[in-house]
Each structure stands twice: as C-alpha cells, then as structure tokens.
Amino acid sequence: MTTAHAPERPVGALLRQWREQRRLSQLDLSLQAAISTRHLSFVETGRSAPSREMVLHLADNLDLPLRDRNQLLLAAGYAPVYSEAPLNSPRMAAVRAAVRQVLAGHEPFPAVAVDRRWNLVDANKSLSLLLAGVAPGLLAAPANVLRISLHPDGVAPRIVNLGEWRAHLLARLRRQIAITADEALSDLHNELAAYPCAQPEPEVDPNGAADVVIPLRLRHGDTELAFFGTVTTFGTPTDITVAELAIESFFPADQATARALRDLTA
C-alpha cells in the first residue's frame, strides 16, 4: 500500500522543477532521454499529456527517488506503481530479518540502519560504544543519528576531529538534499549547522571522492578509536520503504581500534 497523495501541481510543472533541480536544460534532458526537445517542452507546458511509460522514462532519466516517481504518476493521472509498506508490517518481515542479519554480522564493530531522514531504525549491540554519555533525550524515538552525532549533548564532545567529521556529514546531507529536494532534510541541515564547533571545518569535495578516507576519531575513556564508514542499500527495490533504508557500518581504521573493540565486547 502506498501513502502518496495527488499533488496540486501538474505533471509538467513537477518535471520542469526536477529538471532544474538537476541543473539540466531541456536539450540536455531530451538528449539523455532520447526524445525531442519539442515533445519535452510540450509536456512541461501542459500542451501534451505524457503517457504512463513516458512519465516513468523521464523520472528514470532524472534519477528520482521512488516516492517522487509516484507523485509524478499521480500528477499525470495514473496510479502509483511503487508500494510503501511500514517496516513493522508483516510483509516486511524478510526485510527486517535481512537488516538484522547484516547488523549482527558486523559485530564487534558498530552498525546502524536508518531511514531517508536519518532516523534510527535498528542497530547492533556495539553501537553502545559510540553512544556513551549521550543525553537520554537524544536517544528517544525517533532518534536521529546525525543529531546524536553533532549535538553538544550527543557524541560531539568525544569526537577528536569534530570539525572534519562535521564537515563530512553536512556535505553528505547537502548532496542528499540536492537529490531529494526534501524540505525536512533542509531543516535538519540548518539545525545541525547551527550547533557550535570550536574546530575549523575544511572544505569538502562536492563530488564526495574523498569521503571514504575521512575517519571518525572518537575518545572512549583513555582510548582513541578510529573508524571509517561504508553505506549499504538494497539493490533494485520496488518498495519505497526498502529503497530509503540504509545501513551505515563502521570499520576499525587501525589495528589498535580493532583490538580495543574486540576487548571491549568480549
């Protein structure tokens, strides 16, 4: 079952908005989608009604999130094709089990599952190592992992390279906003950017080429732990909830961290 509602704007206006969001001209998109610029112009201005297949074709070439593809279909007068089942529903049992298996398999290193707005969905036991000292209010549902990371009452006071890690997280969030145009994520970015940080924040490559080598350096008692992270998503999902799930896994960036984590969780 999907929760999409018919948008107030016509499909042509939505397509134009997304094309401009992607910084594509009509010529760029028409060449990419192998359609005439004239036809694309007629669709955007409402002079031509696109077929269901054309709506999905253009959405695919614009690399739209599944929920926004549904919105385009509704705006064009067609039924949505992507379902959106709650993660706690019976039909999502296999998905929950798969997420739990990935998280448990990553022990003794921390891993979390988050939704499209970075709210915590699930985590393995080792996450408690990262959450030591976090204010209980930040952990109340829906707990947001970015807020937990950068809030002054969260993990931030224990992050040795807070300026570098904060710049990395905010740059990731800006890229996500550029892809999704999600106003709630924009509000979250503004909130996080307003948190205090006494360290300089370096410029981050907008293409994210160096993201994988940016470590998280964390004080844990008298020990400094170092991690690098990877993100796992489900391949070719047809359900919106599944498409928006992500698993963030932290790996030890050095042998000392690996040994410390094994000792702490033994």
Rank of each mutant, 00 (worst) to 15 (best):
A97E: 15
P110N: 01
L72T: 08
L120V: 11
N119S: 12
A75K: 05
N124W: 01
N124A: 06
A94E: 05
A85L: 11
H106F: 03
P80R: 03
Y78H: 08
V114Q: 10
L74H: 09
L72N: 05
V99I: 15
R100A: 15
V81I: 15
L127F: 01
P80T: 01
K125G: 13
N119Q: 11
L127T: 06
S83I: 03
A98R: 10
R100C: 12
G105H: 07
P65V: 08
P86T: 14
L74S: 07
P108M: 13
A79L: 15
L73H: 05
A79V: 14
V112Q: 02
L64D: 12
V99L: 15
A98E: 11
R91Q: 14
V99N: 02
L62V: 12
R100F: 11
Y82M: 01
P108V: 13
A94N: 03
V95L: 04
S89Y: 01
S83Q: 11
A76F: 12
L73W: 10
A76G: 07
A79D: 14
M92G: 01
Y78W: 10
E107T: 06
V99D: 01
D115V: 07
P65I: 07
L66A: 06
Q101E: 15
R69M: 14
Y78K: 01
D68V: 10
L66W: 06
L72W: 04
D122N: 03
D63P: 03
L74Q: 07
A113K: 03
